[in-house]
Computed example of a mutant assay.
Amino acid sequence: MVSLGDLLSIALKIEASGYEFYSNLSRQHSDSLQKFFSDLAEQERQHQEIFRKLIEDDKKKNASLSNWIEEETAGYLKSLADVSIFPNIEKMKTNMTSQDALNFAIGVEKDSIIFYSELIPYIEEEKQIIKEIIAEEKRHLMDLLSIKL
């Protein structure tokens, strides 16, 4: 079985990669996109801190049975991260046009929303925190889509 802490660690890695990606994009632009990407990077950094705290809280709970995720669900979530999110993040590290970067960022934001939404049934008192992160990721997605158009 997989613990909630294991999946929260994946979420932390997603946010860390997002921070790195948006920071790099911010450095590549000198126009209005610089501030936009810088703001996204800062929000991803804040999400990292939230997931770190959730991981610490999970450890303090001694991984009670309620924090264990069924193998089928855990397998789906790990596959989503391994097949969709992380390969796209790796591609984002390559040199690409702004439009390509926006397309990849849109895909990662969508997959992140799905990943975080799937965590909600397994989180107890922290549900609202995850829902707020999902709302922020949805705003990121909408902002990215508006730039792409």
Rank of each mutant, 00 (worst) to 15 (best):
Met1Val: 06
Val2Gln: 06
Ser3Pro: 06
Ser3Asp: 02
Leu4Asn: 00
Leu4Pro: 02
Asp6Glu: 08
Leu8Asn: 02
Ile10Asp: 04
Ala11Met: 02
Ala11Phe: 01
Ala11Val: 02
Lys13Cys: 08
Lys13Phe: 07
Glu15Met: 09
Ala16Met: 15
Ser17Glu: 13
Gly18Thr: 00
Gly18Gln: 10
Asn24Pro: 03
Leu25Ile: 13
Ser26Tyr: 12
Arg27Asp: 15
Gln28Ser: 15
Gln28Ile: 13
His29Ile: 12
His29Asn: 14
Ser30Pro: 04
Ser30Cys: 15
Asp31Tyr: 14
Asp31Ala: 15
Ser32Asn: 13
Lys35Phe: 12
Lys35Glu: 13
Phe37His: 07
Phe37Ala: 10
Asp39Pro: 09
Glu42Arg: 13
Glu42Lys: 12
Gln43Val: 09
Glu44Met: 10
Glu44Gln: 13
Arg45Lys: 13
Arg45Ser: 13
Gln46Cys: 11
Gln48Asn: 12
Gln48Phe: 09
Gln48Gly: 10
Glu49Lys: 13
Ile50Gly: 09
Ile50Cys: 11
Phe51Gln: 00
Arg52Asn: 04
Arg52Lys: 14
Lys53Phe: 12
Glu56Trp: 14
Asp57His: 07
Asp58Cys: 04
Asp58Ile: 06
Lys59Gln: 03
Ala63Ser: 07
Ala63His: 12
Ser64Met: 00
Leu65Arg: 13
Ser66His: 00
Ser66Gly: 09
Ser66Ile: 07
Trp68Arg: 05
Trp68Tyr: 10
Trp68Gln: 06
Glu70His: 10
Glu70Pro: 10
Glu72His: 14
Glu72Arg: 15
Thr73Ile: 12
Ala74Glu: 02
Gly75Pro: 01
Tyr76Trp: 11
Lys78Pro: 05
Leu80Met: 14
Val83Leu: 10
Ile85Lys: 01
Pro87Asn: 08
Ile89Arg: 06
Ile89Met: 13
Ile89Asn: 01
Met92Gly: 11
Met92Asp: 03
Lys93Trp: 01
Asn95Arg: 12
Met96Asn: 14
Thr97Pro: 05
Thr97Met: 12
Ser98Cys: 15
Gln99Ser: 15
Gln99Lys: 15
Asp100Phe: 13
Leu102Ile: 14
Asn103Trp: 11
Phe104Cys: 14
Ala105Pro: 05
Ile106Asp: 02
Gly107Ile: 04
Asp111Phe: 00
Ser112Gln: 11
Ile114Gln: 05
Phe115Gly: 03
Glu118Thr: 09
Glu118Pro: 06
Glu118Tyr: 08
Glu118Gly: 05
Leu119Met: 00
Pro121Cys: 07
Ile123Arg: 02
Glu124Ser: 07
Glu125Leu: 08
Glu125Phe: 04
Glu125Trp: 05
Glu126Val: 03
Lys127Ser: 03
Gln128His: 12
Ile129Val: 14
Ile129Pro: 02
Lys131Ile: 07
Glu132His: 11
Ile133Gly: 05
Ile133Glu: 09
Ile133Cys: 08
Ala135Asn: 08
Glu137Ala: 09
Glu137Leu: 00
Lys138Gly: 07
Arg139Val: 06
His140Ala: 08
His140Cys: 00
Met142Glu: 13
Met142Tyr: 09
Met142Asn: 11
Met142Ser: 07
Asp143Asn: 14
Leu144Thr: 04
Leu144Trp: 01
Leu145Gly: 06
Lys148Thr: 01
Leu149Asp: 09
Leu149Asn: 14
Leu149Cys: 10
Leu149Trp: 11
Leu149Val: 15
